[in-house]
Computed example of a mutant assay.
Amino acid sequence: MNRVLRSTLVATLLAPALALMAQASEPTNVKELQKARHDHYHELGDNFKVVRDQVRTDKPDLAAIKTAAKFVNDAAGEQEKWFPAGSGPEAGKTQALPEIWSKPAEFKAAMKMFSDAAPKLQTAANSGDVAAIKTAFGDVGKSCKNCHDKFRAEEH
């Protein structure tokens, strides 16, 4: 069997297996989706706190800020996927308010505010300009608060 044919055969046989493996790593039920969403936001909060804590010091760790700002920016681009239909309060305990699904245009606008602010934080972090980082951090924080005020229940 020649190499091209063998490679084609292997690729043909592996594709379904790889697809199944990818599906297996994705949450499969609503509880898993809710937990994954919670975990994503927890990690986002941890990275946001890194930036906050570092800009409050006399000698900020710019590498830590840069890494955290990249995570915040990446999360901003992914968060829309974290709210599939059926993963709200009707599915169990969650801080996600039903308005996320009943007012999708408003929720999308709130997420856009965050996804517009996050790249500016990453740009500022990459520049190493602490004053610019503080300003961009404040803008990202305002976008988070905007969404939390409208679409997130208080923790009990």
Rank of each mutant, 00 (worst) to 15 (best):
G92V: 05
E99F: 04
K81A: 14
V55R: 02
W82D: 14
K103T: 14
K66S: 14
A109N: 04
K93M: 13
S87G: 11
I65P: 08
A91C: 10
D53R: 08
N47V: 00
S102T: 15
A96E: 05
L97G: 01
G92A: 06
E78F: 11
R52G: 02
G92C: 05
A109S: 11
F48M: 13
A85K: 15
D74H: 05
A68F: 07
V55G: 04
T94S: 11
V72G: 02
Q54I: 00
V50K: 06
G45A: 09
E78A: 13
K59H: 10
K93I: 07
I100L: 13
D61C: 09
G92T: 03
D74W: 08
D53A: 04
V55E: 05
K66Y: 04
T57C: 05
P104S: 04
T94D: 04
E80Q: 09
R56D: 10
V51M: 02
G77F: 09
A91W: 11
K103M: 11
E106D: 15
W101E: 00
A75N: 01
W101C: 03
F71P: 00
P98N: 05
V50E: 02
L44E: 10
N73S: 06
V55A: 01
P84T: 07
P60T: 05
D46K: 07
P84Q: 12
I65G: 06
A105D: 15
L44I: 13
D46H: 06
N73V: 03
T57R: 06
A68Y: 03
K66G: 07
A64S: 15
F83R: 03
A69P: 10
V72D: 12
K103C: 04
H42D: 09
E80S: 12
D58T: 13
A63C: 02
E90F: 05
W101N: 01
A91F: 10
A69E: 03
A69Y: 01
